[in-house]
Design a protein around this nucleic acid. Structure first.
Lengths: 194, 194
DNA sequence: AGCTGTCAATACGCAGGCGTACGGAAATTT
DNA sequence: AAATTTCCGTACGCCTGCGTATTGACAGCT
């Protein structure tokens, strides 16, 4: 549950910078980076621009702060899978998680559509690199040769990114529940050795 | 070579609707769908809005016409690989082509970042569906069971879409020429049976 | 009670893009 | 050559979003 509504009247009377950052992230999830505009978000929060320009010097500053917040949250989420000792099991679990609670990947998907933006780009670059490294390590531990592990990790990650795009926006694959499970199993069989 | 410049002065004196559509496609390739605006493209073509609103009733109409043009061009391009009889060979060739002349996939990548747009969405839906069907048929001919072929096709296509996004905008994978070739070979080994 | 700092409303100017109205020039037809 | 069609320029009004300036409301401290 992200605080989607939060008319500040019914919560507390004043806003903080964090409120604006969270509202920006909600907006990104719903309508993408381009929708992060001062006046619309102000309306959403039930205030006017006057509030915003007290907390932030500019629109870009809000975007930057929001993305840094997201990046930190994202790191924490990834750590949950790390303790799994068996690397293959860790990879399978990773794929399964991704396929299920995609809601948490909505923002990633939205940011993927804004990779040309100068503020978004470095954030995504870092996040993607860390995730690919994570995969690479797992593949190495699973016994793959160094370069092979690297390629496989990149490939699996590309599939992840593409899958998000296609399923979020295009509704592809148009599958039943049972078929979807089979699809995920197929992905695991294809990407996880043995 | 798309007609990137084409100051109408030095070609012919007047423009047609097709000129505007092509300019729109060039703009999409360079700066994305959001950059398809009347006045900037008019400046690019060396005319004013007066011209545009003679050929098109609205901005949306231009976008629609441009995308329909692209969709037709895209279909023709795909037919080139179709005559290859051996399905596995056909799949390999498809992957190789995609990895090389990515320039022709620039527009696809740009449209992928605008899947939320009501005009873009149905076009991409059709194009993606046709391509996935194309892959599915190849996989079936290669001996895969019906549902397995379907899943494999979707998975390979997701990898294609994700690869485009990551490589176009993020510069990932950051590989040398030799490494890149190995990477492509790895993709083929992973996605094409045997 | 008064001061001060914090947050927000109002009002303004500016820029860029959309769409309209109208008029003019050049090419094409008759 | 005159009329008509085709194409384009100019000027305007509208809207939306950015950022600034100014003023005001309220809280906490003294």
């Amino acid at each position: 549950m992200t605080s989607t509504s939060a008319n500040r009247v019914e919560s507390r009377g004043r806003l903080s910078a964090v409120d604006w950052e969270q509202a920006a992230l909600d907006t990104i999830a719903e309508s993408g980076v381009a929708a992060v505009a001062v006046e619309p978000i102000a309306r959403r929060l039930g205030v006017t621009k006057g509030s915003f320009y007290w907390h932030f010097p500019t629109r870009e500053a809000l975007l930057k702060a929001a993305l840094e917040r997201w990046e930190r949250q994202d790191d924490e989420e990834f750590i949950q899978v790390e303790p799994i000792r068996d690397p293959k099991q860790r990879l399978r679990e990773l794929i399964r998680r991704t396929s299920r609670e995609m809601q948490s990947h909505v923002i990633y998907s939205a940011l993927l559509r804004a990779l040309d933006h100068p503020i978004v780009q470095p954030v995504m670059s870092r996040v993607s690199q860390r995730r690919i490294d994570f995969l690479t390590i797992a593949y190495r531990q699973a016994g793959l040769e160094r370069r092979t592990a690297s390629y496989r990790a990149r490939l699996a990650y590309a599939a992840y990114a593409g899958f998000l795009q296609l399923s979020m926006q295009l509704g592809l694959p148009r599958l039943s529940h049972a078929e979807f499970d089979e699809y995920v199993d197929h992905a695991i069989a294809t990407f996880v050795p043995e």
